[in-house]
Nucleic acid binder design. Structure first.
Lengths: 145, 145
DNA sequence: CTTGCTCCTGTAGTCGCTACAGGATGCATC
DNA sequence: GATGCATCCTGTAGCGACTACAGGAGCAAG
């Protein structure tokens, strides 16, 4: 079998941090940061002290990255990893986290939409001339709004 | 006469920081923070060293607060204050800052809407049962997405 | 004069990174 | 085997916009 005689966790040919960074699109410093805050397990090292990563690390890191892209906080992602991890995931728990996050997103969208409308109509009223009463400053100023 | 001979800038009856905080809805620590980063002029002090604020401070602070509520960054607000300040404001400049900010808001809304759709449809597919393949974990996992 | 509130300065923590400084390692080439 | 250069290491400080102390001083009422 060409399969692996691993030192620890099924890992031969590891990649150094720079290549993991390229593979996953996550910055090198960010990877080390994730290790520091325990989002990632500390990988084994070379004799010289350099980190060596395997497939599992790449997948976990990609998972984290995707979660961040979806706007999850690191703590939420940590929870999702724990749920998805040792196979004992209850889908309902995962769903709960995601649903909560969806609520947050919807609230943010609603807030931003209000802002957008207010700003857009205000800017539309602004001629761009040098006018003593600027509508944009007006909505900012308590005296008039 | 019980009246006060104002020390500096036409200011009688000043209020202490706690009252300014109540008046404007801005946290005390935040007010001091604004002073430190020079969003606010350092106010005069009592003999004992306590800050005394006047009307102008309250208006500026309210302006900043409103700007923050509208999602402007402190640097943008600083610029707006400078423009609106000594009466020499060109409305076009104000408009430019606001329009740029509006662009940002619209971009954020668009991004969040994409996220919302993706998450919402994914969560909808989730039964909540203990299923080996959780759709929510699936979109996070590189293997399937 | 004591109680209790407000206020003071200064520092450190939040979140999720990013950007150094000042070295050590590893690999290819001569 | 020496050299050069890319990559890596640790540790610390910075970003934005605050918030949260710690440890002390001021001040008004009873």
């Amino acid at each position: 079998m060409p399969q692996i005689t691993a030192s620890r966790a099924g890992r031969r040919d590891g990649v150094p941090i720079g290549e993991l960074s390229r593979l996953t699109g996550v910055n090198i410093e960010t990877i080390r940061y994730y290790e520091k805050i325990k989002m990632l397990q500390p990988p084994p090292r070379t004799e010289g002290g350099r980190r060596i990563y395997g497939l599992t690390d790449a997948r976990v890191l990609a998972f984290i990255r995707r979660g961040r892209e979806l706007g999850f906080g690191l703590e939420e992602i940590r929870a999702l990893l724990a749920l998805g991890g040792p196979g004992k995931a209850s889908c309902a728990d995962v769903r709960k986290i995601a649903a909560h996050h969806l609520d947050d997103i919807r609230t943010k969208i609603a807030d931003l939409r209000k802002l957008e409308k207010l700003l857009a109509t205000t800017i539309a009223q602004c001629s761009g001339n040098r006018v003593p009463d600027c509508p944009v400053l007006d909505i900012l100023d308590i005296r008039r709004s």
